[in-house]
Design a protein around this nucleic acid. Structure first.
Lengths: 210, 210
DNA sequence: GTCTATATAGGGATAGAC
DNA sequence: GTCTATCCCTATATAGAC
């Protein structure tokens, strides 16, 4: 594998493990057993590494949020949508750990991240409206708007929330937290579903968390 | 006012405005027109300033979360609880802006903040159970548990979420975001309320946001 | 209590040899 | 492409005069 790609890969891992502000370019070079000078041959500066990682993140997030546009959405779409979102957040969690800090240093990232948030909200709203049109969901337009915002908030920050709550906990892997996150978001939607769908979701949730 | 207190006050303001990692001890001294040496006469280091500010925050948050323990909770309690929480988050928003970063440097803060999150969850659950016992709310224990977690997430991260969404927006003050945050959390609770209470909440919300 | 001056350390980044 | 050596800058923190 090319050094350039290894730098990106290693940076992502270290950023995720320790937080981007704590990882210096020297740390990255050290971990890879290359010289700091070599790293700067491949990248102009640390910010360029972050930008590249952000681009990867953005592409994958775009793909996740484009999923349900093809046809009439249903609960399957919601489930898929949530899974893809949570997996992406998890894989690029360093962004979320120090969001304000990172976005504050780079206006382009801030703009793009804002766009992603807006798409999270609008995709959630689209799916909910689809569920309503399909007769599965019962909610006013106002309720759907608020619901979509809440879905976006929980989908965005759940892993942060859990990582603080779970610090020092004896067990409970991170993959558990992904599943719990999906469950949390589904529980936002549940009370608006009609009887059968709500039962189905409850059963699905129980299997899922077991 | 004593220099020591002015340092705390100025630090809080600058931290909130620019983010704690970007504000150095020199910045603080500069802003106050005192020397860096003077600052270090009053505080051993930057961390001590942060710890003191955190203590203030914790005391106020404790007070906010103790409120509804006295009697049978109702929607008034929920509303009061949310307001106090959001105001505290707003006044000490620097903590939330760089939460992982700050908590990662100081285990004591991490432990204490975790406790606050747990209390947010349990207080929300207590209030909801109270609403259920009062016949205002209709929800299973499982639903209340998930709801309480979601309330805590939204109450904790809403202002972060909005500050990213609103960056570059032409208008929409921060106090609007507080009100919107309360509305968002209430909209989590609304679908579990019985008819009359739900109507009341809708009316209340509309007045509130107007 | 407050100042000036300074020590120390670490991170970001570059130059030039190989 | 990679390394070594080094420079610059900034942030934390201290020493000692006033």
């Amino acid at each position: 594998m090319k050094t350039r790609d290894r730098i990106l890969q290693t940076s992502l891992r270290l950023f995720n493990e320790c937080g981007e502000p704590r990882i210096t370019t020297n740390h990255i070079a050290d971990e890879m057993d290359i010289s700091p000078g070599n790293l700067y041959y491949h990248f102009r500066n640390k910010d360029e590494i972050i930008s590249l990682l952000f681009q990867q993140f953005e592409r994958r997030m775009d793909a996740a949020l484009r999923a349900p546009e093809r046809r009439v959405p249903d609960m399957e779409d919601m489930w898929l949508y949530l899974h893809l979102v949570f997996e992406n957040v998890w894989e690029y969690r360093f962004l979320y750990r120090d969001l304000d800090n990172i976005l504050g240093r780079n206006k382009k990232l801030r703009t793009h991240f804002r766009r992603i948030l807006e798409r999270k909200v609008s995709t959630a709203a689209t799916i909910c409206t689809g569920l309503k049109d399909a007769g599965i969901m019962d909610a006013t337009a106002e309720e759907i708007a608020a619901l979509a915002r809440n879905i976006a908030v929980v989908a965005t920050y759940w892993l942060n929330f859990q990582s603080i709550r779970a610090s020092g906990a004896p067990q409970g892997g991170d993959s558990d937290n992904l599943a719990l996150g999906v469950y949390q978001v589904l529980s936002l939607v549940a009370p608006f579903l009609r009887g059968e769908a709500r039962q189905l979701l409850q059963k699905l949730s129980r299997d899922y968390l077991a």
